[in-house]
């Protein structure tokens, strides 16, 4: 199945979800906000869209998992679906950047590695990328999904 068809399916799924939420008295709409060859980003907007985020974005991730399963079912190719709500992804990225920098500074000044809480692959990548240009620290992941976590350690002494 062509990706264009899958994108259409993804958008229909999200619009149906927003409609079901509205039927339940929530002010939520869905809109495609990014279109890439391999994936789409669909954003939920409206006064109640923040109730789809959940603690640390868990509800948004859960919806994304279900959407991916439903949309890619019986499809030869795979479409990457990202859901956003109330601009959560961008806000979370900024928070992770700030946290990563602060922890990296502590690791450098204290000389001890720091073990972060388990995070999704997406969030680990954000932290890793935020720190990849720093020569004074290194980052690596340990543990098994969904408990996989990132470690920020001092750079290996030369």
């Amino acid at each position: 199945m062509a990706n264009e068809e899958l994108k259409q399916r993804a958008l229909e799924f999200a619009e149906g979800l927003a409609e079901a939420a509205r039927a339940g008295g929530m002010d939520i709409t869905a809109e495609q906000t990014r279109d890439e060859p391999e994936g789409v980003t669909i954003s939920f907007q409206g006064a109640d869209s923040r109730w789809l985020i959940g603690k640390a974005g868990q509800a948004l991730d859960a919806l994304q998992t279900m959407a991916s399963l439903i949309v890619n079912r019986q499809a030869g190719s795979r479409l990457y679906i990202t859901f956003d709500a109330d601009n959560y992804r961008a806000r979370r990225e900024a928070t992770l950047h700030k946290m990563a920098t602060e922890i990296a500074d502590q690791v450098v000044s204290g000389g001890q590695e720091a073990v972060l809480d388990p995070m999704s692959a997406l969030e680990r990548r954000i932290v890793h990328k935020a720190l990849q240009d720093r020569a004074d620290i290194r980052t690596y992941s340990e543990g098994e999904e969904p408990e996989r976590y990132l470690v920020i350690a001092p750079a290996i002494a030369k």
């Binding site: 939420a21 109730w51 509800a59």
Partner: peptide
Amino acid sequence: RIANALRTVAKAAAMK
């Protein structure tokens, strides 16, 4: 996994 995903979404929406 899917049942838990449903619970996570329902719990978040019920916070309203």
